[in-house]
Nucleic acid binder design. Sequence first.
DNA 1: AAATTTCTGATTTACGTACATCAAGAATTC
DNA 2: GAATTCTTGATGTACGTAAATCAGAAATTT
Lengths: 358, 358
Amino acid sequence: MRPTVHDIAAEAGVSLATVDRVLNRRPGVKAATRMRVEAAIAAIGFVRDMAAANLAKSRVYPFTFILPAGDNSFMRGLEQHVRDAMARPSADRVAISLVIVPPFDGAAVARALDAAISNEPAGIAVVAVDAPDVVDAARRVQASGIPLVTLVSDLGPSCRDHFAGIDNHAAGRTAGSLMRRFVGQERATIAVLAGSMLVRDHRDRLDGFRAALSDTCRVLPVLEGQDDPAATERLIANLLARHPDVAGIYSLGAGNRGLIAALQRHDRPRPRAVIAHELTPHTRAALEGDLIDAVLNQDAGHEVRSAIRVLKAKADGIPAVEAQERIRIDIFLKDNLPFADDADGMSLRPSGAASGAN
Amino acid sequence: MRPTVHDIAAEAGVSLATVDRVLNRRPGVKAATRMRVEAAIAAIGFVRDMAAANLAKSRVYPFTFILPAGDNSFMRGLEQHVRDAMARPSADRVAISLVIVPPFDGAAVARALDAAISNEPAGIAVVAVDAPDVVDAARRVQASGIPLVTLVSDLGPSCRDHFAGIDNHAAGRTAGSLMRRFVGQERATIAVLAGSMLVRDHRDRLDGFRAALSDTCRVLPVLEGQDDPAATERLIANLLARHPDVAGIYSLGAGNRGLIAALQRHDRPRPRAVIAHELTPHTRAALEGDLIDAVLNQDAGHEVRSAIRVLKAKADGIPAVEAQERIRIDIFLKDNLPFADDADGMSLRPSGAASGAN
DNA sequence: AAATTTCTGATTTACGTACATCAAGAATTC
DNA sequence: GAATTCTTGATGTACGTAAATCAGAAATTT
């Protein structure tokens, strides 16, 4: 049997109450006694039974999550993972309110943040839009003492406590390395498709991508599709028509649906290398159908759970271990695709254990 | 507040004892009453508080893990993850005994299995060697009613309950696809390095690799290094000397250390594409030093935790959800390397939360 | 109708921790 | 030396569930 608080008390020769005071950093214990208790804890290798502790505390953490609306597959997958977390308050004693705001609308995000503040949650997570009024609202959140985590898209270190997302510069570099290897020729022509250069993660990816390619390829000016499938499709069709020599396309954010549609309709051989971001039903199908060669992915489930862990730590005043909360950059080819209900959160998974527990 | 057993009792108009009988499938409840209680459970949306339930049960699951000895980095990483799980019995009420047996020694594994049986654990996990006496011992485990999970290397579906590892055929295909794209030329010459063709996972990877390349490349006969660094290094040095045209090397299992040493000592340009398996300190350093282009990885931490979940489910008579227990095939380039303490389990991590919780 | 079996209720203890209260001893201050 | 503060012990309740016991009530059999 593993040791309990009673064992500590016996080992240290003090009462349960004193052990409790030491364990929970309550005042009223002499330094010498405290050290004796701590020595006993170390000696018998006591570790708090968090299940029992949480049960006793019956503490709940009310968190607010702010996500963009729209039919972007990745965002809807993210929302599903948040709902999964909501549906299983058991494990973590978390009570999440979910707020959906119009996409790419800084003012709406700012309003949602202010509204959240007035509810006095134990923490807020937000998919940020990199706009001045959002930054201001974020500072108000911090000023009110509520921990704030940015999700997927960051705001900059000064106005949030933590960023739960991937290193987008590294993701861009990864895409660049793959692209360089996949096109396999010097001075190839590469096209880049983005949703909007106004979001920080897209800018970072582009920087990393360019850095990895350095001068080995010719990168065309960025095409911005504004996450509009029809517009994106036209952009790509146009590109393919006017640049028959394009050897690679990098889709660094929103717009995969339009890209895929254009590739599908294209009658000549497609560019040698097509690399996109985010594993969704669309990109998965495109991978399987050989329209795309590689997909870089950030696991939305991991990001949501990481955000919750960090918020809880901040709420408890425990510093989160940043190194443990890094989100990986996954690379998927058609050969190592995870099962459908695995990575994209788009499936109707009941709730429970789930792959994320991996 | 979420509903409790008391709420069920009130809703169904029965006593707590009856609710308990229904919840825990104890006998002595009339069918009509049982249905009333179940209706109430559904109506108020009760979900058992597993933390409280486990606390009350104070049930422990004694499991035995059997791992090979030797200085293979991946296996030592795996062991570290098992020790991590041992050091945190809190979360899952698991008590693991760890047995280390000589590597590549079927008889030793068989003996360890028989010894484990006599301890009557609630489950056994084993890194299997694909030998007849191991198969026999595995059948004895199953005959004694103890759930058996193979870890990393499989035995075949008929003599174990579950395999906690990657789809090695898919891993081989993934390596093949990458190789084809990385060498970027038709009819390139590719070398394959293995530890031993006697282990099943290595054979599977080779099959997948060949299938993905089909006839686009010329694959040289497999080099078997027997996981001996010095011998492997000689093999590779010899290969590079005799086949200056080798465009790619696929290291499909043990032997990375020797491979890396040979590449390091090689004075002419190395083959265009070098792909290896398992992210260890050695392969990580080689990736960072541009001696290797890509590393395929199975997350040992995920595998250990998955094995534990499956064993618990089997011990409880609950069928494990196989689809949720798939282990992913990670692809790492130098650009998307996770932090050092993240994937390889080789770091001196205390125990607790850890990245695996992602 | 009595005897039996089956079902249900009421109650208690336990799991390991958190937290509050009250009393009493020890150490400090004035 | 009395008054005050600090430190510790003793004790009880709570969290949500599991599990056991015993006593009735209801249904069944004889």
